[in-house]
Design a protein around this nucleic acid. Structure first.
Lengths: 154, 154
DNA sequence: TATTGTTATACTCTATAACTATA
DNA sequence: TATAGTTATAGAGTATAACAATA
């Protein structure tokens, strides 16, 4: 026994620490759920975006913060798994539109439900007042960082 | 013009949404700073852990949530860049201890300072009361998730 | 010429399985 | 036998550069 690395008495002393650790906690929880379905977080985000849109590759890439070539690969892997499909763009002979297959939609819905549930469970110990404050503070931070609103997608 | 994907009026309506978006916001900010120094988040976490420890490979792998073979690769890439070094374990002929080089320490310190600053800037718009509440809520969530305390490392 | 998308290539990060060397 | 670590291999995810086809 007697681990070299102490058990992280990790009580975050500063707001910055707290925020960073919280972010890793949420990120990790989401990734774990994704892994349960043999998906990565980026694949989940892709499916999440497509729930109510059928964008082109460049649009998708921009939204996910990826290069267009990375987008080609990401979409290709999702397509190979039968989760999305490429459709020719009706307005532009060069373009393709990416859309969910029924299997992709069903998987997306299951995953987002599980993620909502997991994060909700995480916040279960908070009082109503604390939850309200948390949401308000988060909104304030999101606005401060991205005055337009630009963050995730899922 | 007229983008296919709307500009995300992304006002998170639920606490869950807010928390998830906040987590992506912080994660992204950290990754952007890491990239500035041509580092990944996992490399930064590695350097961060090593600031006050000289653990063995298995210990490190456990702390970062990686397989030992992934740890070999991660350490190897950091070593190739002159950021860490392998030292023979004095107590165990099989073991190696991983430690920061001076260059690695200096880079680790610069990065953590920038990250602290970036996250602090993010929370600059909060009132003192909001900051206190945020920290308290984060602590509560971290405890709820990991009764021992186990999260990040950086 | 500019835009949309793919391909070729290279690198990081990750895991599984097989292996070496020490305990 | 068990433990510490590496190697071989495979795959996801990412970017840059070069390319094709359409606008």
């Amino acid at each position: 026994m007697a681990p070299t690395i102490p058990q992280d008495a990790d009580e975050p002393q500063t707001t910055v620490d707290a925020l960073v650790q919280l972010s890793f906690l949420v990120h990790g929880a989401l990734a774990r759920i994704a892994a349960t379905h043999d998906l990565s977080l980026i694949q989940i985000r892709l499916l999440g975006i497509l729930r109510d849109r059928t964008p082109g590759m460049l649009d998708l890439a921009r939204h996910l913060g990826l290069d267009k070539s990375s987008m080609t690969g990401l979409a290709g892997r999702a397509e190979k798994r039968g989760l999305v499909e490429r459709r020719p763009s009706p307005h532009d002979g060069r373009g393709v539109l990416i859309g969910l297959t029924p299997a992709g939609r069903s998987l997306a819905e299951r995953c987002t439900a599980e993620m909502d549930q997991a994060v909700a469970a995480l916040t279960a110990s908070l009082t109503t007042a604390e939850r309200d404050t948390l949401r308000a503070v988060a909104v304030k931070l999101l606005h401060a960082a991205a005055p337009g609103g630009e963050t995730s997608g899922t």
